Amino acid sequence: MIGSLDLILRLVIWFLLTANLSVANIIIGICVALLLPHGKTALGALKDWLRVLWEIIVAIPQAYLEAFELIFRPHMQENITMERAKPRRSPGLVFLDIFLITFTPKTIVVKYHEEGWYEVHRVQRSRKR
């Protein structure tokens, strides 16, 4: 049986995609969440889940600030960096990490490397020389 946090994550994604909270859609969402394949990885510690969820909540105002900054002071410099993923992450936590990085307008995860690295595309203000 999949962990309850993974089930909740799958249901939240289902409801965000369908934008429908009818009884039929809830039943379909539960069936889809249970039928999706899952690995034999250990469930991430509750502390890790809570930390990532808190970081997402904190990222919401940051995303608005970055959006206004991009509107009023355009960023012209781009670069791709490699960021180390935290060790021993379940697939659900990896998804939330990628979501957190991609949520803000200045960054997007281009690729996740199985060795534990995120390839992140960033836009920045060009430095005056």
Rank of each mutant, 00 (worst) to 15 (best):
D6M: 13
V32H: 15
S126L: 12
T107E: 08
N20T: 02
V109E: 00
V120R: 00
N79I: 02
W117E: 08
A45V: 13
A59P: 00
S4W: 07
R88F: 06
H38I: 08
G3F: 03
G116Y: 06
Y112S: 12
Y118S: 06
A45L: 15
I13V: 04
S90C: 08
I71Q: 01
Q62C: 11
G39I: 08
G39E: 15
R122Y: 08
E69S: 15
A33R: 06
L46P: 12
S90R: 03
I2L: 10
E115L: 00
T102G: 02
R51W: 02
Q77C: 07
I30E: 01
Q124K: 15
I56S: 06
G116W: 06
V58E: 11
V110R: 09
E55I: 00
A19W: 12
E66G: 08
F95W: 11
V52S: 05
I101F: 06
V120Q: 02
G44T: 00
K106Y: 05
L50V: 05
E69L: 14
G3H: 10
I98G: 08
Y118Q: 04
G39Q: 14
G116D: 11
F68R: 08
E115C: 01
L43Q: 09
P105I: 01
L53S: 07
H113N: 05
R51L: 03
I108A: 08
R84N: 13
A33G: 10
N25K: 11
R89S: 04
I13C: 01
I26N: 06
T18N: 14
L100S: 04
Y112C: 11
E66A: 11
H75I: 00
E114H: 13
L16N: 15
I8E: 07
L43V: 09
V109W: 00
E83T: 09
M76R: 15
L17M: 07
T102D: 04
M82T: 12
I60H: 07
G29W: 01
E69H: 14
I27C: 11
A33I: 00
G29Q: 03
A85P: 12
M82N: 13
F95L: 14
Y118D: 07
A45M: 15
N20H: 02
A85R: 05
P74Q: 09
E66I: 02
W54N: 07
D48Q: 03
L17P: 01
A63E: 01
I28V: 05
